[in-house]
């Protein structure tokens, strides 16, 4: 049990009559890189929101690092080592890049003083390759720069588990390669990583295991190679008709 860092047990989230997430159960082992995939609207972001306390689960329990965190608030998640980046990046626009990261270090990473937080922030900026932009306002960064900033901010919070929500969306191929290298480096430090993506090919190379969400339900959980051949996954991604046609073609 102790090597499970995060465990979801029958977690559901309803909005009115709409089941955004229904009875999802899975566990993440310490040090794993896991991909959470699914088509748009599958409930991936809602699931992350529920895990980090942005939205409260309608049913089920969530355990993190041996603690029941089902009813936690986002700031508590941050302090417990549950960090995330956003699909739509959320910087403090008028603050400098350095201050943005220092905020993560001070409040989430429990640094004792602003001076220490700033010092820690510098090393994280160097790690993600933004050291040269430390004193620019965050709003002046490009999209890929802002995604790196998000990453540095999350790292400054000394996470045990890092959830990356579509970090690659909107980036070009070489930027994606850079981001993937960074994510591997973070994993090498022993941080458990959950990569949320709707593009399957991005996670294929990165993740040791894939979780597939469709209409709020977990339809598959396994190693990437098996997942891509799973008919339910193909159907989820390509739609029923198309999947049937593929099947017919295979049967000749």
């Amino acid at each position: 049990m102790s090597d499970k860092i995060l465990e979801l047990d029958q977690v559901s989230k309803n909005f009115g009559g709409n089941h955004a997430v229904s009875a999802v159960s899975f566990a993440l082992k310490e040090g794993e890189i896991v991909g959470l995939i699914g088509p748009n609207g599958a409930g991936k972001t809602t699931l992350v929101n529920v895990i980090t306390g942005v939205q409260r689960a309608s049913a089920g329990r969530i355990h993190f690092d041996g603690l029941d965190v089902t009813d936690q608030r986002p700031f508590q998640a941050a302090r417990r080592g549950l960090a995330r980046t956003f699909q739509i990046v959320q910087p403090f626009p008028a603050m400098t890049v350095l201050e943005n990261v220092a905020a993560g270090a001070l409040f989430g990473g429990a640094q004792a003083s602003r001076a220490e937080a700033t010092a820690a922030a510098r090393t994280h900026l160097e790690f993600v390759g933004l050291a040269a932009f430390a004193d620019r306002p965050a709003s002046a960064l490009t999209l890929s720069g802002r995604k790196r900033l998000e990453l540095a901010k999350s790292l400054a919070m000394k996470p045990k588990l890092l959830m990356l929500d579509e970090v690659n969306a909107g980036l070009n191929t070489s930027e994606i390669d850079g981001a993937l290298t960074l994510i591997r480096k973070i994993a090498d430090r022993g941080v458990t990583i959950l990569v949320i993506e709707h593009l399957m090919k991005v996670v294929m190379s990165l993740a040791q295991r894939l979780l597939v969400l469709h209409h709020g339900q977990l339809i598959a959980d396994g190693v990437p190679r098996e997942i891509v051949d799973d008919p339910r996954v193909i159907e989820a991604y390509l739609g029923g008709k198309f999947a049937k046609r593929v099947k017919e073609m295979q049967h000749g």
Partner: peptide, 26 residues
């Protein structure tokens, strides 16, 4: 202004949800 409180307040002023996410007890 110079302390932890002021920094947290500025984070809230800039983006309250993001402040919550980085661990500010908003």
């Amino acid at each position: 202004d110079r302390g932890r409180l002021g920094f947290g307040l500025r984070c809230i002023q800039q983006n309250e949800d993001a402040a919550d996410m980085v661990g500010v007890d908003t």
